[in-house]
Design a protein around this nucleic acid. Structure first.
Length: 283
DNA sequence: CACGTCACCTGCGTGC
DNA sequence: TGCACGCAGGTGACGT
């Protein structure tokens, strides 16, 4: 599920609390339990369990699609991939006696009688415990919402790549945070076809694309992300989709039926009327 | 460098 | 009802 807005929503909830949930900042991990070993990317399970003990949560943020938890000695990175989620359990007499759920993979028990549970039905999600988080985060491209990422800078980035727009935008080393849904929505907003070659965009189109990306992500965050399928999120951005998942439904701008195509193995949605700047090689 | 394919996993919706 | 199949928010390892 989770793309940048969903991860941001989750990180904020852990950091600031929301509704019933209160922040876990400054709380101390008493110990952890790993129910699915492959959920831990690094270090080894024994080292992970040993090192995490006694660490205090000092900051919680996000970089790309990673939740970044700065602990007293290390940094814990959480990547939810397709079906991961985290939940906080607190406000019960004894959290450790609450039954775990079918898809729970890693559990952190806090001294404050709380649990942070990483759940992940499809088991694609990963956790890293690192002395230096840059080992992992250093691979990422810029943050799309950063004010330092300007239209001029983005145009320069696009000019350096001879790739199709959609796969390029989803490449986390190019730009960190877009996934399948928000990419389709941003391309629609910018009126650009996903198969256009990045290098071929003019300055105006590059600028429009960056603005569309920023606005789409900000709207997603404002709505607390999108909740679709059986993975509950609590957000409602899914009700704002213009193209994603709307195959054969009328374009909300021009009424033309939305088309679904496959790009880089990923389901891709476009309005063939609004996103016309791509020309098939009509030799 | 760019692209295609498969692998990793489970669960849900659809159609026969 | 059972069951096969296609689909799913992501990424990484290959091969061409």
């Amino acid at each position: 599920m989770p793309e940048l807005p969903e991860v941001e929503t989750i990180a904020r909830t852990l950091r600031e609390g929301k509704g019933e949930v209160h922040s876990i900042l400054e709380h101390t991990i008493e110990h952890a339990s790993v129910l699915w070993e492959r959920s831990i990317a690094t270090p080894s399970i024994p080292e992970f369990l040993r090192r995490i003990q006694g660490q205090v949560v000092q900051h919680i943020g996000r970089r790309g699609k990673y939740i970044v938890m700065t602990l007293s000695e290390d940094t814990l990175l959480v990547h939810l991939r397709m079906s991961g989620d985290v939940r906080v359990e607190q406000d019960v007499a004894d959290v450790s006696s609450v039954p775990l759920k079918k898809h729970d993979r890693v559990v952190f028990y806090f001294q404050e009688n709380e649990r942070l549970v990483f759940e992940d039905a499809r088991k694609f999600g990963r956790l890293w415990l690192l002395a230096d988080p840059q080992v992992e985060l250093g691979k990422l491209g810029p943050e799309p919402l950063s004010e330092e990422l300007t239209p001029a800078e983005f145009a320069t980035m696009l000019r350096q790549h001879k790739r199709q727009l959609k796969p390029l935008l989803m490449d986390q080393t190019f730009l960190a945070g877009l996934g399948n849904i928000y990419t389709d929505e941003a391309l629609f907003k910018a009126k650009l076809h996903p198969l256009m070659v990045a290098q071929d965009l003019n300055f105006e189109q590059a600028g429009a694309l960056l603005i569309a990306i920023k606005e789409t992500l900000q709207e997603g965050i404002r709505r607390n992300g999108a909740s679709i399928d059986w993975v509950y999120r609590g957000g409602d951005f899914q009700n704002q989709f213009f193209v994603y998942g709307r195959k054969d439904k009328p374009c909300l701008v021009c009424g033309t039926p939305i088309e679904r195509l496959v790009v880089g193995q990923r389901s891709t949605h476009i309005c063939p009327q609004c996103q016309v700047n791509y020309q098939e090689d009509i030799a």
